[in-house]
Amino acid sequence: MPDLVERNQLIEANLPLVGYIARKEHAAANHLPLEDLAGAGALALVKAADTFDPSRGVPFGAYARQLITFAIKEEMRSMDWATRGVRQRIKKVTEMREQLSASLGRTVTAEEISDTLGMALDEVQDALQSTSKVIDLEGSAAYQVHAVVALPEESAVMSDRRDVLQRALDALPERMRVIVQGVYIEERPVKDIAEELGVTHGAISQQRGEAIRLLRDAMEKFHLDSDAEPTSTLSPATRRDYLARVAKSRYASAD
């Protein structure tokens, strides 16, 4: 961690980066307050300055950019109103609109989309009106390209993040690991996972939420080297045992 003078210099020198990233992300969701996104990014910049370790060989700008971008996207996600079902309906409607427009060579009407999909007209109209207000955090082409084609100085940060995340996932209690893999990696319906495990839909949601909190705690500790307050609601002993499993896996591989 840099001393106080160096820390403040890093923050002041990189404040324009916060504004740049906030404006870029805001362009895809201009119904959200730019000030809120910039505020989340500024807090992430301070966190980056507090946790920066130059011995890792990663430039501060690349390290800060990762944290700022993640924080702003998390802020956008927290302010986004759309449920997964709403997103799926919007995606289905917009894809059909593009397909019909391409085949007919003209702009299609909501009625034509409704007839083709067999979807109620009011649902189609709502979906079309909502397209500009839904944040596509994972599916946008720009985000996918950035995730795959990292700048050279960012590759070490991304590689470390992927490594920690995989080890944190592997260290989860078995049921939590099955749920996270089923929902987020295999994209299976929660109903199917609940039936397979013999539990209720609510139990799956509860376990999934706790698993995400454990993963977040592991990322804070082993990727960001942060002593942030734990988000997990499990007992301190259970959380400590989990983090110990992550640490054992991570540091054993370095021997």
Results as ranks from 00 to 15, higher is better:
L137C: 06
A228H: 09
S132Q: 11
A218Y: 03
D192K: 13
S155F: 06
L169F: 12
V180E: 06
D192V: 12
P189K: 08
T231K: 14
V134L: 13
A168V: 02
D241H: 10
L215F: 03
A211F: 01
V180F: 13
V178H: 04
E154T: 06
Q144I: 15
Y242D: 01
A150L: 11
P173Q: 08
L172N: 06
Q207W: 09
D225H: 15
V178E: 14
D241V: 03
L172H: 04
Y143L: 07
R240I: 00
A141G: 07
A147Y: 08
A194Y: 02
E154S: 14
Y184C: 09
H223A: 13
A150H: 04
A147H: 08
A142P: 00
M158S: 06
A168P: 04
A194R: 08
D160A: 14
G182H: 01
V157Q: 10
D217V: 06
A237C: 03
I135C: 04
K191C: 00
D225L: 12
A247W: 04
E154N: 03
S235Q: 10
E153A: 12
V178T: 15
R216Y: 06
K133C: 05
Q206H: 12
T131E: 14
M219A: 08
S155Y: 08
V246P: 01
I179T: 08
L169Q: 10
Q181K: 14
F222Y: 14
R240P: 00
E186L: 12
R188F: 01
T231H: 12
E153Y: 03
E187C: 08
R240S: 15
S232E: 07
D225Q: 13
E195R: 15
L128W: 03
Q129K: 14
R177P: 09
E229I: 07
G139F: 09
L172A: 07
L197C: 11
A127G: 06
R188K: 15
H201C: 02
L165Q: 12
H146I: 07
K133R: 15
S132W: 06
V180T: 12
R188Y: 03
G182S: 11
T233M: 10
A156P: 00
Q207H: 13
D170Q: 12
V178A: 09
H146L: 13
V157P: 00
R162K: 14
A171D: 07
Q129Y: 07
A147F: 11
I135S: 04
V149R: 08
V246W: 03
S205L: 14
L151D: 11
A168H: 01
R175K: 15
D241P: 00
V157N: 02
G202N: 12
S140R: 15
R213A: 11
I193M: 09
V134K: 07
Q144V: 14
R177W: 03
Y184H: 14
G139S: 11
R167F: 04
Q129A: 15
M176G: 08
Q129V: 03
E174P: 07
K191I: 08
A156H: 05
R240D: 15
Q206V: 06
S205W: 07
P152I: 08
E138C: 01
G202H: 10
A228W: 06
V246A: 05
V190E: 12
I193D: 03
